[in-house]
């Protein structure tokens, strides 16, 4: 069962993304939206944890939320795909189930 995990909380000072990464199983997807998009950047203290998670899950980040926050798409961790709202819909349609980490 392919599972999509959606995270919208900033990873700094909030354990949500960490819990999500620990919970996600091989072959699942993680989508970072809203304040969670900061964790997709390559130069933060979260980068190593996120890169590690990419061994088991495919990670994507919502482009409009990056742009809103002034974060440069070209500095996103390599291997994370930057998607738009259409891509968001595609991922939801492709996966069997969605867990929103509210």
């Amino acid at each position: 069962m392919a599972m999509l995990h959606i995270v919208n909380k900033s990873a700094f000072g909030n354990a949500t993304l960490n819990s999500c990464i620990k919970t996600a199983t091989q072959g699942s997807s993680i989508l970072l939206i809203e304040d969670a998009v900061y964790a997709a950047m390559g130069n933060t203290s979260m980068a190593d944890i996120v890169k590690e998670a990419m061994n088991k899950a495919s990670i994507s980040v919502l482009g409009p939320d990056l742009a809103a926050r002034g974060m440069d798409q070209s500095k996103v961790i390599e291997g994370i795909s930057v998607i738009g709202y259409d891509g968001f819909v595609d991922i939801v349609a492709e996966t069997d189930n969605v867990q929103s980490w509210l």
Binding site: S10, F12, G13, D35, Y38, P64, D65, A67, A68, R69, G70, M71, D72
Partner: peptide
């Protein structure tokens, strides 16, 4: 402090999220 530092980030462009 903490995530509040992101408030001052340059180049914010929230039009695409309707803000």
């Amino acid at each position: 402090s903490d995530d509040g530092v992101f408030q001052l980030k340059k180049d914010q462009d929230p039009e695409s999220i309707g803000m």
